[in-house]
Amino acid sequence: MKTHLLPAFRLTIVLALLTGVVYPLAITAAARLAFPYSANGSLLRDARGRVVGSALLGQRFGSPRYFQPRPSAAGDGYDAAASAGSNLGPTSRKLADAMAERVAAYRQLNGLAATQPVPADAVTASASGLDPHISPANAYLQVARVARERGLSVEQVGRLVARHTQPRQLGFLGEPRVNVLRLNLDLDAPAVR
């Protein structure tokens, strides 16, 4: 063992510098050069040029004038410095109660009948707590409410949702989705009317 400790120590230092310092710093430099927008966190700005968040991260929208994202278990909700899922399992009473409550609230907010099924993504906490997307079905169920709250026509808001619906990547990977922050940013833009 003793004869191996010295080479082990020296090799550790060399490989640690190569893989733990040189490699990540080189990738950082290359990424900043080639893809500065995503390397820096895909930050989005509003019409006035203020940074309002990341295109990749969900954030809280309390007002009914905005499309609502998925429930979040990150910190106190949408805490982008404390990502987390709920970790509640299918036999959890806490989860069952929360789900029943969210279903009722979603129906009430969007004026749905008491028997109308609610999209699963609207009433379940995402894995990261920062899911930026909702399903198109969830988005369309919110269109009438958002249009009413903003004095817009259902068609205007519906068109906006259609424009923000991303299909499956390359036509078959993943699921169709709507980016809530991008959609809401466009809702606020004066061009909507």
């Binding site: 990738i27 950082t28 990424a31 900043r32 080639a34 893809f35 995503s38 390397a39 820096n40 966190g41 895909s42 930050l43 509003d46 203020r50 940074v51 309002v52 968040g53 990341s54 295109a55 990749l56 991260l57 954030q59 809280r60 929208f61 309390g62 007002s63 905005y66 949408y78 805490d79 982008a80 410095a81 990502s83 922050l181 809401n184 940013l185 606020d188």
Partner: peptide, 27 residues
């Protein structure tokens, strides 16, 4: 990175969200 994975050494920015809240973004 080309698909959106972050790669920087910056401190976490805190932003004012669209709905008037604040969000600190870990990167």
């Amino acid at each position: 990175v080309s698909q959106g994975v972050a790669q920087n050494l910056a401190p976490y920015p805190t932003v004012s969200t669209l709905d008037g809240g604040r969000q600190t973004i870990a990167m």
